[in-house]
Amino acid sequence: MDLSSINPVLLIASLMVSATPILLAALGELVVEKSGVLNLGVEGMMITGAICGFAIGVNTGSPVLGFMFAAICGALLSLAFGILTQYLLSNQVATGLGLTLVGLGLSSLIGKPYEGIKSPTLQKMELPILSDIPIVGPMLFSHDPMVYFSVALVAATWAVLKYSRAGLILRAVGESHDAAHALGYKVVRIRLLAILFGGACAGLAGAYISLVRVPQWTEGMTAGAGWIALAIVVFASWKPWRVLIGAYLFGGVTVLQLNLQAAGAKVPIEVLSMSPYLITIAVLVIISARGNHGAPAALGKIFHASR
């Protein structure tokens, strides 16, 4: 085994790329859950975003348009979830699972003509000055724009949730929708906006896989990333910066696993392959053993003004 052949700079650089989809999706879901809604349809919205973004990217030749359209598609799909759960008061868990199934089916239907096509992809954006710093430059500052965008979105989400009035209202709705309603806030409308944000983020996450990371379209290509995103929200105890840590940790283990194999580590491949999942489970167990989850009090509860 020759571990010296693993270059930490490149490892961290590819870890950031590998983690970006789950980071975006988890961040969207965090906002949704902060408003008290549990949307288990992340996987479905991601895969729909992946194919919509890819289709537009291929047809227009512009990955940026692809990303925008992916966000719109993800949001539209989440709107269906929003109407069902917020206005028709359906069960959030069942509706979310249904959304995943719909998304997987819909995407493979739309995707048939796009199999085996190359797509335009985002160019790397070397940040001036910063990317010239030795070691740190190539590690952190020579990525494609979506990587920076995802990190900026973490900061923005954190700031809005913590310091702004809008964030306070969102959190109030998530903690006690009855109290928020009594204060005159439009609970359903606020939740719907949060759901749309979550859908858009999941759409972007999917498009990042089909337009940048692979870049190609295949049926079911998100391969469970949406579920990991859901786990990361819990892992992060509903805090944006911890979502970033969780996503990078997960991305890191996945990339490290392949690197160890390439370096000829004498660890059974099956163990390496399941290590990301094992670590996620272990952390979840530790967090729940501590007791304080930080979950929004009204998470998953149905709100109706008359009750």
Partner: peptide
């Protein structure tokens, strides 16, 4: 040699190629 345990999974194949190139 990296064992991908799949015939077809573009994301995984891309990551595997990436890891090999980086090394």
């Amino acid at each position: 040699i990296v064992w991908a345990y799949t015939w077809f999974d573009p994301a995984k194949e891309a990551d595997a190629a990436q890891a090999l190139i980086e090394q």
